[in-house]
């Protein structure tokens, strides 16, 4: 088999997954080593407390081309992957979720990315979720695509292939709140989807409450459409108020017993307050976001970096080719 001259980087985020480290590195090394002349495995330790980093360091003397970036605390999946992306050097950078995305599919995805000169997004068949969660997710995706101008892919995972061009574009985005799922469509470029079957060891999906929380944060960070809706709502409320003033005026002119009207008054009050607080809620979200973005704090802190140091290379590698070309 001829090795491809492509340089491939694989970025994984690990959080308290010490047991998974060794099989992960072993499988990635064998898949990448069998297909590519040059590769690197960038493992981002997202503030693990179970000795994941120590386990990786142990393996640095056995596996080549492995790099460990240890973040100073937990920053979350998207920031951890960004740290990896910003330090990856490959022509193509693959991000994957350990234990969920099968490394064996990497060459196929990269071939697709190369053929169509596009970013490739993995789509996984989701494990079954409660009805409410499923309906909520459907509704959310519908709203994102139709109302919010956020072309999210239902079922899109962190298993993706990005070209150097796309990685550079993402690195230039300095948002403190970042959701790679929303950023990758945002930067444009061609995309292809890649349906796959996740591994049985896939971590269980987030709860409904967590999902709603992520959904709100994702929308607020990436779309200003809700603010636009709120503006329209405010205009509508003002118009209603104007109409009501006219109504009150007419009543005053043409009616002689004006003591009634308590019902109308209460309904109008309640209606206006409802709109007012709705508007406040949305504006608050955005003000909070503006506060955080204007602080311009670094997105993450790297506590340390460690690299492979293999005394005798290729110990496990067989020196056999099947083709003379």
């Amino acid at each position: 088999m001829i090795l491809s001259a492509l340089f491939v980087s694989v970025v994984c985020r690990l959080r308290d997954q010490a047991a998974l480290v060794e099989p992960l590195i072993a499988e990635l090394s064998s898949v990448l080593g069998d297909h590519y002349e040059n590769y690197e495995i960038v493992l981002v330790d997202d503030g693990s407390v179970d000795g994941t980093a120590a386990k990786i360091k142990e393996l640095l003397s056995r596996f080549e081309c492995v790099r460990l970036l240890r973040l100073s605390r937990k920053f979350g999946v998207d920031v951890a992957l960004t740290a990896g992306l910003e330090s990856a050097i490959g022509d193509y950078v693959v991000t994957l979720t350990p234990g969920m995305d099968p490394p064996a599919l990497i060459p196929e995805m990269i071939a697709l990315a190369q053929r169509d000169n596009a970013a490739v997004h993995g789509l996984a068949a989701r494990p079954s979720r409660p009805l409410l969660h499923r309906v909520g997710a459907r509704l959310f995706h519908w709203a994102c695509v139709r109302l919010l101008d956020l072309p999210l892919q239902p079922g899109a995972t962190h298993f993706r292939v990005l070209s150097r061009q796309a990685v550079n574009a993402i690195s230039e985005i300095k948002d403190n709140y970042r959701y790679l799922r929303a950023l990758t469509p945002y930067i444009g470029y061609a995309t292809r989807t890649f349906p796959y079957q996740p591994l049985p060891s896939t971590p269980k999906p987030e709860s409904l409450l967590e999902a709603v929380d992520t959904a709100i944060a994702l929308v607020v960070s990436n779309s200003s459409r809700p603010l636009r809706f709120v503006s329209w709502l405010a205009v509508l409320a003002s118009a209603l108020n104007m109409a009501y003033i006219g109504y009150v005026f007419l009543v005053n002119v043409f009616k002689h017993s004006v003591a009634e009207g308590w019902t109308t008054l209460s309904v109008q009050n309640a209606g206006m307050f409802f709109l007012l607080f709705l508007i406040l809620a949305v504006v608050t979200e955005y003000v909070g976001r503006i506060l955080n973005e204007t602080r311009e704090r670094p997105l993450y802190y790297i506590a340390e970096e460690a690299n492979s140091s293999v005394l005798i290379p290729g110990r496990d590698r067989r020196n056999v080719v099947t083709d003379s070309q």
Binding site: R67, E305, N307, S309, V310, L311
Partner: peptide, 9 residues
């Protein structure tokens, strides 16, 4: 700095 040292002992 990262790639010049192949291994250390």
């Amino acid at each position: 700095v990262r790639y010049t040292p192949h291994c250390a002992w």
